[in-house]
Structures are given as C-alpha cells and as structure tokens.
Amino acid sequence: MNVENTSKQSWWTRIAHPGQFVAWSRRLLVPLWIATAALFVLGLWLAFFASPEDYQMGDTVRIMYVHVPTAWLSQFVYGVMSVSAIGTLVWRHPMADVSMKAAAPLGATFTALALYTGALWGRPTWGTFWEWDGRMTSTLVLLLIYFGIVALWRAFDDQLRAARIVAVFTLVGAVNIPIIKFSVDWWATLHQPASVFRLDGPTMPGSILTPLFVMVFAFTALFLTLHLIGMHTEVRRRRVMSLERRLAQRGAA
C-alpha cells in the first residue's frame, strides 16, 4: 500500500502490459539500430583492414569473424528462449510468450548461418565442406531443434495456449542440449581419433581477438534489435487477431 509498492507495480505493468511495453520500448529501436550499424562498420573495418592474416590459417581466419558470432548467437538465442520459457511457465508473463515466439526464427537463421560459414571455413582448412566433428554436428542438431520449435508454434491456432506448451518443450530441449553435446563429442572422437584443427581461446593473439569481440557485439546488437521488432510485431498480430475475432462476432450477431 505504500509508495514503494505502487511504483514497483507500475514498473511491473510497464513490462507486462503488451501495449505499454510497445509504447516505451519503441524509443529503444533507433539507438539500437545506430549501435548495430556502428558496431558492424567498426567490426568489418577491423576484420578486413586492421587485422593481420593468421600464420597458420592465412586469410581464412577472416571467416571466423562471421562464424564465431553466429555460432555464439545460436546458443545465446536458445538461452533467451529458455529464460522466456521460465517466465511463461512460472509467472505467466505475457511478454515472455511474445519474446519466445519472436526469438525462434531468429535463432534458426543464425544457427543456419553458423553452419554455412563453418562449411566455407572448413573447405580450405580441412579440405571438406562438411566434417562430422563434434561441434558442427551438435550445431546441426540444435538447428533441427529450432526447426521443431518453429513448426510447433505454427501448428497451434490458439497462440496463448501454444505458449505454455512450447515453453515446456523448449525447457526439455534446454536440458537435453548438454547431453546431446556430450554424446556427439563422444561419438565424434570414437569414430575419428585423428585430432581436428582446434581454435582454442588462449592461443589466439589479440589482433584476432579484438575484431572477433567487436563482431560478436555487433551480431548480438543486431539480434536484440530484430528481437524487439519481432516482439512488437507479435503484439500487434495478437491485437489484430482479437480485433478481427470481435468484428466477426459482431457481424454474426
């Protein structure tokens, strides 16, 4: 009943109420676009003009500057979806549903891009577009899970009911992903004892790490921007659907 309580409540409604959420978060879009563009310009400049070629990989190291960020996003987006799924199941937060739905196609796209750039990097480095090594294989399985989640969303007519069910499946997938990762690694080493080329963190010189980090931030900013737009679109879509339903009901009455 005190002041603190009411201010907390208004903070909560600002996040939870779809209309209010769109109203205040629209102002974030322009700064997000600017940050994304600036980071990409800086990152690409660093990647092509300010970084040397790797002594081992030569110029193909430049593919890493788009491969690592997309691979990072493929997992980060699943993390966002899992947190949103918990929000849906525990607090029945309406914006968590929307966030989950908007993130799924983005995650699928970035995972596909990670595989695409990985294949183009593997061809000059390993001599083949596709190698059944642990990391690429588990990324492929992750892509299949994303496709399953997108298909599940599309299968439901009632999106409000769909949210809780997709949330359950998303969390089952989240529990499963480490198990898949472990089993695929076990399988890959069993069938392929020869060690593949590894790019481990500490061995990378700073001249490669700087553009890599800038590109990771650039891609993350891009995801956040597109995710916010997707959430706004989803809120509008639900509003359109409820208005159309009401219109149809009035027409029938």
């Binding site: 593919i63 491969h67 891009l113 183009l120 990097w121 000059p124």
Partner: peptide, 13 residues
C-alpha cells in the same frame, strides 16, 4: 588463395 570462400561467406551472411 582462398579469397573465394571468404567472399562467399561474407556475401551469404
């Protein structure tokens, strides 16, 4: 020597 792959990677993305 591997410019083709780099260009295709960036182009595709």
């Amino acid at each position: 020597p591997h410019a083709v792959y780099i260009v295709w990677a960036y182009l595709g993305v």
